[in-house]
Amino acid sequence: MHELSLMNNLLTDAIAAANGAPLRALKVRVGPLSGVVIESLQFAFDALTPGTPAEGARLDIEETAPLFHCPHCQTSYTTPVGNYQCPACLATDGELRGGCELDLISIEVPDHV
C-alpha cells in the first residue's frame, strides 16, 4: 500500500497549486510500470480527502502504455506490460522511454474563487 503515501504527495501538490481554492478535480497520469495499482490509488484518494480542500473532488486517471524505442530499427512503439518485443523487427531489447510516470497533470478549481 505505498499508494497511500504517493497519493498523499499528489494531494499535497494539488492543494498547494489550488492556492486556497476548493478542488473539483485532479487529473493524474499513471504509467503501467510505475508499480502502483489504480484501485489502491482511488482507495487512498477516498481515504485522504475528507476534511481537506479536495473533499468531494473527482479523481481522473489517465493510463498510459509502456513506450519503447527500438535501437535497431528506430521504431517507437507501445506494448502491453510483459511483452516488449518491437513490432517491426522483433528485437526485445527496446529502450524504455515512458510508462513509469505517476504525475499530477492538472487540477480544476471553480473559476470564481
Partner: peptide
C-alpha cells in the same frame, strides 16, 4: 459552475 484548469505537471 465555471471551472478553471491549472496545469501542475509534477511527479508524485
Amino acid at each position: 459552475e465555471p471551472m478553471r484548469t491549472i496545469d501542475v505537471r509534477k511527479s508524485a
